[in-house]
Design a protein around this nucleic acid. Sequence first.
DNA 1: TTAATTTTGCAACACTGTTGCAAAACTTTA
DNA 2: TAAAGTTTTGCAACAGTGTTGCAAAATTAA
Lengths: 138, 138
Amino acid sequence: MKDVISEILKNNQLSVTENRLKILELFQKNGKALSHGDIEKMSGKHFDRVTIYRTLQTFVDKGIIHTIPTADNSIMYALCKDTCSEGHHHDDHVHFLCEECGTTYCLDNVTIPQVTIPKGFSVHQTNVLVNGICKNCR
Amino acid sequence: MKDVISEILKNNQLSVTENRLKILELFQKNGKALSHGDIEKMSGKHFDRVTIYRTLQTFVDKGIIHTIPTADNSIMYALCKDTCSEGHHHDDHVHFLCEECGTTYCLDNVTIPQVTIPKGFSVHQTNVLVNGICKNCR
DNA sequence: TTAATTTTGCAACACTGTTGCAAAACTTTA
DNA sequence: TAAAGTTTTGCAACAGTGTTGCAAAATTAA
Ligand SMILES: [Zn+2]
Ligand SMILES: [Zn+2]
Ligand SMILES: [Zn+2]
Ligand SMILES: [Zn+2]
């Protein structure tokens, strides 16, 4: 397990450090989107706040995790699929936020629908965020 | 003009104050989404920060403005249509963020597409956020 | 005009995120 | 394995954002 995570880091030209192993492991274990605050709590205040911020930013830059827009003012992060790489994210799936438990899911199999935009506007990226109740809360 | 805005406030059982008139006027004049920071700058530091926060929250509660999810960590606000009321928003349109000028638009005529969600999940609301270049920037 | 109610501004605070820099950890090389 | 070079970390300090309590001011109702 640790070895697999180490490989991910090495493949991205990143030093293998305790902090990075731990944070990647948290994403793997939880299988859902995490906020900076979530990680800070779960890592048992073992790492500095700043280090966590910098690690998340590094992972986003490298295409290891992606950010998810939210209606309230918080950034969520989730693991990317193998198709993402440095500077090139392809996380074109729908995100679901459960209003009961607060969990944010990547619905990897639900593709983003095509939206028709008025003339003169050109589209780079479309984000779809669905709110509701998840399968565990009903 | 001021009278029309006063009416909006009275219809929502809100006292007519200079602050509220000014903020509503800013939304009417600009015709685009505004952040708390935008309003603070545009109002010429005439009102206290806290007052602006509370006014925005009040307007959201009353169904006068709605919030817009963003990919970066900032809340944007825009005027609702007449169909919204206290506790009942119906702002089911697509939002567009221009990567060039930073303007956020409500695309009132672009309806939210239906997304098919896995079994066990139930949908309350769907937000669609499109990034790209707007008609003024190309 | 006065009394009752609502709104505002101030102070103080909590939370989130950023930067510079020296120390520590990690990687490379020999 | 040890030393040198490079990257990462933790600390301190700071900026930005948003919240709460409370007394003063403004607005509304009588
Ligand atoms: Zn990605
Ligand atoms: Zn995702
Ligand atoms: Zn609304
Ligand atoms: Zn809108």
